[in-house]
Structure formats: C-alpha cells, structure tokens
Write a protein that binds this DNA or RNA. Sequence first.
DNA 1: TGTGGGGCCTCCAGTCACTGGAAGGTCAAG
DNA 2: CTTGACCTTCCAGTGACTGGAGGCCCCACA
Lengths: 141, 141
Amino acid sequence: MNIGDVAQRSGLPAKTIRYYEEIGLIRPQRGENGYRRFREQDLHKLAFLGRARALGFTIEDCRTLIALYEDESRESGQVKRVAEEHLHQIDDKIAQLQSMRATLAELVSCCAGDDRPDCPILEDLAQDVPEEAVGASEGVR
Amino acid sequence: MNIGDVAQRSGLPAKTIRYYEEIGLIRPQRGENGYRRFREQDLHKLAFLGRARALGFTIEDCRTLIALYEDESRESGQVKRVAEEHLHQIDDKIAQLQSMRATLAELVSCCAGDDRPDCPILEDLAQDVPEEAVGASEGVR
DNA sequence: TGTGGGGCCTCCAGTCACTGGAAGGTCAAG
DNA sequence: CTTGACCTTCCAGTGACTGGAGGCCCCACA
C-alpha cells in the first residue's frame, strides 16, 4: 500500500502519517522508487494511533501505549495507570473550561448587546486588581 | 514602574509582558537606560489582558476587546458577539472532552489494572476500522 | 511515443502563546 | 568597588501538526 491508501483506510492525513514516521512512531518500508510501502500491520498501528489521539492521548502517551501493546509481558496495571492519569487531566481541563464558561455566560447574559456602548463584559474585564490578590493567579493555562 | 513591578501587580510574567509589547498589544515608554517604563494605564491594560486570557479569549480576541474598550462609540452588541462566539467554542470543547471522558472512563473501569497482560483498553484501541467508516472521522482535533 | 494529471518525495516555514536560556548592560546597597 | 538583583535583546523550543514549493514517478490515453 502507498501512503494514499493507508491515509484513506486509517482516516489520517498523509501529512500526519509522514510526521508519525519522522518522530519514529511507525517505520514503513520503502519501495525502489522511494515511496513508503505500508503493510497491514502498519495500517493497524496507524488506526491504533488515530483512536488513541481521538481520545486525547498525547503522542508520548501513544508511544507508551504502543510499546505496551506490543509487549506480551505487560501488566494491565501499567496501561490503566496511563489512562487514569490522562482521565484526570481531562477532568481538570473540563473543570477549568466549565469555570470559564460560567463566568462568561454570566457576563454575556448581563450584556444588552445593542447599539449603546455600555457593556458589563468590558467593565468586568477592566476591573482593578485587588491589591492582596497579587501573585495569586497560578495554574491558569 | 519597571517591568518587575507590573509583573508583580498584574500577575503576568515579565516574559509575557515583553511578548505583549512585541506583538503590539501594549506600548510602554522607555527610560534613558533602555528600560521599559509603565504607567498606570499600561498596568490597567495588562490586567485587562490577564483577565481576558484567563477567560480563554485568544490574543486576537483580546486585541478586538481592547480596541472596543477604548472606542467610546462602540456598540455593546459588538462585544457581546465576540463573547458569544467564544462561549460557543468553549461549549464545543467541553462537549468534545466529555465525550472523550465518557469513553475513557468506561475503558478504565473495565480494566483490571493488575499484573496480567489482558487489557480492554488496548483491545479497544486496537480494533479494526470498519470498512464503511473510512473517511468519516472529520472534525476531531 | 509523448503528454497530462495525479500521487509521491523532501524540505522549509508557520501555527499559538508563550517559555527558557545565554550573553551582556544597569542600578543600589554595603 | 563588588555583589547581586534587575533589566535588555536575541534565539530556540514547545505540541502536533499543516501548507506550500519544487521536483520525481507512474499510468492511461491519443
């Protein structure tokens, strides 16, 4: 199979597949013409990667997961630990977004949204910083 | 005020403040020694930026919001539109993360997490792609 | 046998919003 | 006069791609 075929069948863009080779996630063979030649097992791995990425695992997680997948003597506890760690990060992210969402929704609901200049959204953003809050805004990304 | 003072009082790292100058969000004056000299209005603007960024607005949104803030003849509808657009993007993001979370939590709960190699998480990731689903995985980032 | 078009190759640059670090100038206290 | 904190610029790296230029390769059709 050429890259176009695996792109089609895995759902990943050809560019992404080349990138995965570049960072050592896959090692397709090469034909005499220099074209990448993919076997079924390469496709399988790409599909694995596509699903792991769709679940939000980082590339480094994917590397770990594939290594575990190929390791017959793995312990499922290792896999579970990676997944749980990721789950916690997702939970943190959701919590952070929900907090933003709450504030933002409140502001939006207070804004008339008409042709007058008065706007509670801008007023909120322009508040003075309370003096004692200095240096207290860590951990926001 | 020097950059260290505004960093302290705005809660933004000095590096970030220099970056904001570089991309034209702020224009502090300069002293004879080459140091940036910040006035209260610069600090105010940085605090505005810090809060807008904490709500997840992009830098480009911030540019727009500051321009609107400084425009006496703005219409609050313009501000509201920017905020609503952003709110929708947050909602999309939350929905996407919750969907990932659901799948992942299910997989984690199915995994024994012991010293045996059998692992439903890996099994799920390694599933074959159904033939008819080819090309149907758009919109996942 | 030539030609056209699509697929493939590599390499480079850009994304977003910073962040880290090196090399060096400035300032105030002791 | 030295020390150390603070400031400066410039360059490179982050994550995970994505876009584009410039150029080969291959196959079908005339």
